[in-house]
Design a protein around this nucleic acid. Structure first.
Lengths: 243, 243
DNA sequence: CTTTTTATCGTCATATCGACGATAACCGGT
DNA sequence: ACCGGTTATCGTCGATATGACGATAAAAAG
């Protein structure tokens, strides 16, 4: 907040809030994208977002945009500030400062027909991040940062449960980790880990029936805010213990 | 960046960059604060910062303020974006969006007489965070967030070395961890840990002479970007393994 | 040459992890 | 009722990391 050193005057900037909204659909990590109706980048896909209103808090603006885009007033899941992007020229029209937020939500049964007239859809993040210009503006970078944040935070927080419905099985949760991290995890060690980490999961006593195989117990998210010890993301290199 | 949904018009905001500049001086974690010369909060201490210029990148503005306040053109250490604060009313004059940055630097021999006419000094963060209104605006929260970020990041990154001079001993590094975390660490286990973590430290071969005791080997920061396995911050509760 | 001080190395019990075997509880088909 | 298929859950074992702490090394001070 302004040291008011040699110069006290200041410039004004347009400020927007953009959202990396992530979910896991059919074992694929997806992000919500909207089609732009106007220039610049007309017809291209972009992250949902919009201008912050004059007397609106940043977090409130993010929640408002989230509600508008998902069509769900009380969206379950998680919302946190990601980072702020303000490079000159990132919007060709004028100088724009964008505060990006990261949302993680369970797969929404509603195929998200937001209040906007613009089209919106879930797209696999791998597709969106394959090309550098699949997304308008610098939204590719914002999404990449959001995905990396999500991958890191499910290591030491219970936030992977934000991708799950209120009640879920250990296998459901493992599938989330496998999808978000892009790895395979041993079901037995995973089960031992999540059930042994204090506060991670609460048992409901109930079970699911399945088409085949033993029924699984249903859990809900526990009270822990951080995981001790953390979940370990396997190292990409597996050629270590070859003695 | 603006979905341009129902409304395409936008408001303008003043944007500043504020800095949580941390260092360790005489085994105390300190932050750089400046005295405000004008209203509001005249005479109170605040984090250094200032308005972003019309065509200036956010990171560039942060580096510029850092140089101005520390008086060192190429300040060693580390600088990263922390978070953005934009609650209405946080500046009583007008709506201001502040992008906060976190800097971690070795103890500067120069008693920082910046280019500003305003006074500046290093203050222990414990003092600054003791009262809720020791700092102007919401700078207490920004500083608290910065300290928490620093405490977390030295767990899994080599950033504790950013508080050290280019060459340092294991004891120097341990003192950094003890000061930032506010704990005591076993010198033998700490030595085993840091020397055994790949890429953390590079040995120089040289040693320091001391006033008393065996000379210690000098190290410099290694190439690792993250620590595997991470440094473990002792849990505040020690009443666990009492079987 | 002994004491003091700090740095560095070693030892040992415990906890955790990865790999993987074994068992449990459901299915559908015979 | 029995059997194989499938998935969930429990156990075992070796390797590794960790906390507690003893032992040794290399300097200064007396």
């Amino acid at each position: 907040m302004a040291t008011e050193s040699t110069q006290d005057y200041y410039s004004l900037f347009a400020v927007t809030v953009d959202l990396s909204i992530l979910t896991v659909r059919q074992d694929v990590l997806c992000a919500l994208v909207v089609e732009r109706g106007i220039e610049p980048y007309r017809g291209q896909w972009a992250l949902p977002g919009g201008f912050v209103r004059p007397h609106e808090d940043l977090a409130a603006a993010a929640r408002r945009e989230l509600d508008e885009e998902t069509g769900l007033a009380n969206l379950p899941g998680h919302l946190e500030q990601l980072a702020t992007y303000g490079a000159p020229g990132r919007d060709p029209r004028t100088r724009v400062i964008t505060v990006a937020y990261l949302a993680m939500a369970p797969d929404l049964p509603v195929p998200v027909a937001g209040t906007d007239a613009t089209a919106s859809r879930w797209a696999p993040v791998d597709d969106l991040l394959a090309n550098d210009d699949s997304l308008a503006f610098d939204h590719g970078r914002i999404l990449a940062d959001g995905v990396e944040r999500a991958r890191a935070k499910i290591e030491y927080t219970p936030l992977a449960t934000a991708f799950c419905p209120p009640e879920f099985t250990v296998a459901d949760l493992r599938q989330i980790y496998e999808t978000v991290w892009g790895v395979r995890l041993d079901p037995r060690n995973f089960h031992r880990k999540v059930t042994g980490t204090p506060g991670f999961l609460l048992r409901t006593g109930r079970t699911t029936r399945r088409d085949s195989g033993r029924p699984a117990e249903l859990f809900r998210r526990g009270p822990a805010g951080i995981l001790h010890p953390a979940m370990l993301r396997p190292t990409p290199d597996s050629t270590r213990n070859n003695h």
